[in-house]
Simulated assay, not measured.
Amino acid sequence: MIEKPFIINNQFFITPLLGLIKQNDGQNETRLEPRLMHLLCMLVANKGELVTRALLTKEVWDNYGNADEGLTQAISYLRKIFNDDGKTLIETVPKKGYVLNAIITIPKTENNVVKVNPNKKKVYWIAVVVITALIIGGYFIFRTSHIASKHPADVINGAKQNDSAKLKSPDALETSKSKNADKIPDTAKNSKPSPDLKK
């Protein structure tokens, strides 16, 4: 099977490995199952020549029981995709096979990779560097202005407020005394000395 992309009649862009057929208008896109793409690639590889039904059923369907009927349906489906209502693109040779009458072109690429303009690459990398520098610069400017906005007096006043908050109110002191009173042993609570038993 053909692996490199190709174009049929300057109208249909075929990518065999993806099983994809795109029209030049960019609106219509069709995915083919691997068997149909294999069939199309066989016709393209032998364009202008008769490809027998026997060869197609053997190569594509591996002589499966209903391969002959499957081939007829597959050709019909391909004709719909290529708008080949007159059966001129894929011509039928009765009881023999099919001939693909098409202009096949290979897209102008190097190693199947479309060349990217080197100037576009430079612009891209410059943009990345500039954006990164702006982000880093913005971070340090924000951080510096945030630290500078805290005056020493604010820091001292904040510390004093925290210390004063730790001091308890008079009500809180009373409550803590009463709580502590419960913790005093019973002997310490009685102010009278115990009676002398020896008398």
Rank of each mutant, 00 (worst) to 15 (best):
Y77E: 13
S145A: 12
V129G: 04
K179A: 15
S149H: 02
K58E: 04
P195R: 08
N180P: 00
L197S: 11
I8V: 10
D154E: 15
T15C: 08
V51Q: 02
I2G: 03
L32Q: 09
T132F: 10
D182N: 15
L89N: 07
F142V: 07
L43C: 06
R35P: 08
G86L: 15
I136H: 04
S178T: 12
A102S: 09
K87P: 01
M42K: 04
G26C: 01
E174Q: 13
D171H: 13
V99H: 00
K177G: 12
F13G: 00
D163P: 01
P185E: 11
P16C: 05
I90K: 06
A181D: 15
V155I: 14
K122P: 03
K189Q: 02
N157R: 13
K168T: 11
Q27F: 09
T57P: 01
N28V: 12
K80T: 10
Y124G: 07
I21P: 01
A133Y: 02
D196S: 12
R79D: 04
K122H: 01
S149L: 03
N119D: 14
S145F: 11
A153K: 13
N119Q: 12
K179L: 14
H146T: 12
K4M: 11
N157Q: 13
P107V: 09
I8A: 07
P94C: 03
P34D: 00
N162P: 06
I75R: 00
D85K: 15
T144Y: 11
E59F: 04
M1H: 10
A74Q: 00
A74I: 00
D163F: 15
P185M: 09
T72I: 06
Q73V: 03
G48R: 06
G138V: 05
L167Q: 15
E49I: 05
D163V: 13
D84R: 05
Q11Y: 08
A45C: 10
P152W: 09
P195G: 09
P94W: 03
I90M: 03
P34N: 01
Y77P: 08
T175I: 11
K108C: 05
A102M: 08
E29K: 07
I14H: 03
A127W: 00
I7Y: 06
Q27N: 09
R35T: 06
L50K: 03
K22Y: 03
G70S: 15
N157S: 12
T105I: 06
F142G: 07
I147A: 07
P5K: 05
D84F: 07
L39Y: 01
Y139P: 06
H146V: 00
L78E: 02
N119W: 02
T175H: 13
V128Q: 07
K192L: 15
K198W: 10
D84T: 06
E69I: 10
L71Q: 08
T72F: 00
E110T: 14
A153M: 10
K122G: 05
L32M: 06
M1G: 13
